[in-house]
Design a protein around this nucleic acid. Structure first.
Length: 152
DNA sequence: GCCAACGTTGGC
DNA sequence: GCCAACGTTGGC
C-alpha cells in the first residue's frame, strides 16, 4: 500500500466539504496534469492513504487524512462541455483524464503547516517542500508519512 | 496582489 | 524538435 498527498484550495473544496459529503466520499475530479494523472490512473489503489493539503490560503498545510476507496477511472467531467474541466480532446473511447474516489478519515486538531514541514530537515527531499513544486497529487514516501504524522 | 516557477501550446 | 509566449499555480 502507498501514501499520497492531495492538494486543494479550501475556498474551492475543503476537508470540511469532504466531511459533509454523503458517505464522506468524493471523486477527485479536475486534475489536468499528466504526472498527477498518471499517479491516479496507474499507481493509486483502494486502501491507500493520503494527506489532505490546503493550498492557496492563509495557512497552507496538511489538515487531515483520507483513504482512496476507488481505483483510477475516467474523469467524466472532461466530457461535459458545460464543465470547467471540459477537454475536447478527451473521449469516451480514449479518455485523457482520470480520477479516484477518496473518503474522509480524520482531521488534525492542528494543521501541520507548510512552514513547519519546510522546517523539518528530515523531509527536505519531499516534493511538496521543494521550490516550485506545483503537483496537485503526489506520492509520499512511507518514511516521510511517518515523520509527518509525528509532527501532528 | 505580486511574481517566480512551471507546464503547455503553437509557429517555425 | 526547438523555444518563445502564454496561462496557471501557489507561497508570500
Amino acid at each position: 500500500m502507498s501514501y499520497w498527498l492531495f492538494k486543494t484550495e479550501p475556498d474551492v473544496y475543503s476537508i470540511d466539504d469532504l466531511k459533509k459529503e454523503k458517505m464522506r466520499i468524493t471523486s477527485w475530479e479536475g486534475v489536468r496534469n499528466y504526472q498527477a494523472r498518471n499517479f491516479m490512473r496507474d499507481d493509486m489503489k483502494r486502501g491507500d492513504l493520503g494527506f489532505f493539503y490546503h493550498s492557496n490560503c492563509s495557512q497552507p498545510g496538511i489538515v487531515g487524512v483520507v483513504e482512496v476507496v476507488k481505483n483510477g477511472y475516467p474523469d467524466h467531467t472532461s466530457w461535459n462541455s458545460k464543465s470547467k474541466y471540459f477537454d475536447p480532446k478527451s473521449t469516451q473511447e480514449n479518455p485523457r483524464w482520470f480520477m479516484v474516489d477518496v473518503k474522509y478519515l480524520r482531521v488534525f486538531e492542528k494543521t501541520i503547516t507548510l512552514a513547519e514541514l519546510k522546517g523539518n530537515p528530515k523531509i527536505k527531499d519531499f516534493a511538496l517542500v521543494k521550490k516550485g513544486s506545483r503537483l496537485s497529487v503526489m506520492p509520499v514516501p512511507s518514511e516521510v508519512w511517518e515523520l509527518i504524522l509525528k509532527m501532528g
